[in-house]
């Protein structure tokens, strides 16, 4: 394959991807998506939140899970970074602590796909992260 050095090259790549991608007719309505927020403040980054977020992005895309992965600030659980808030459609948000790649895989395979509870939740009394 040719080297990708310009946006034109990226566009060719995109056309290839578009052909094999079965266009999911998902509405982007937030209510139907799994929302994954990765804590990406200084404490999170220092603990490896970048790898965690990268894993969630790649893995949800790979498994064709209708998810939106975004970044958020510090949730105040610096001791448990990287922290991730997962909101399944129609459910309350759940915050997980110490989410490395192995934990992330467990969260995707068991909590997001099967809806089972997994260890490592941080008990919360708020509804969602506001700052």
């Amino acid at each position: 394959m040719n080297k990708i050095t310009s946006l034109a090259d990226l566009k060719k790549m995109k056309d290839q991807v578009q052909n094999r991608l079965k266009m999911r007719e998902n509405s982007d309505a937030v209510e139907t998506l799994v929302q994954i927020k990765v804590g990406m403040a200084t404490c999170g980054i220092a603990s490896g939140a970048k790898d965690t977020m990268n894993f969630f992005v790649e893995e949800t895309s790979h498994q064709a899970i209708d998810a939106v992965v975004t970044q958020t600030g510090c949730m105040g659980f610096c001791y448990a970074e990287p922290t991730v808030e997962v909101t399944l459609p129609g459910k309350e948000p759940v915050v997980f602590g110490h989410v490395d790649k192995a934990k992330a895989r467990e969260i995707i395979d068991r909590y997001i796909i099967k809806g089972e509870l997994v260890d490592g939740m941080i008990p919360m009394n708020f509804k969602t992260i506001h700052d």
Binding site: K3, I4, T5, S6, L7, D9, L10, K11, M13, K14, Q16, V17, Q18, L21, M23, V57, E58, T60, S61, H62, V69
Partner: peptide, 19 residues
């Protein structure tokens, strides 16, 4: 450039890394 194709597609992410 990507239009409808999501940035999160693994092939696209790899292509952007190369870019």
């Amino acid at each position: 450039t990507l239009g409808e194709v999501p940035l999160t597609d693994p092939g696209i992410m790899q292509a952007i890394r190369e870019l």
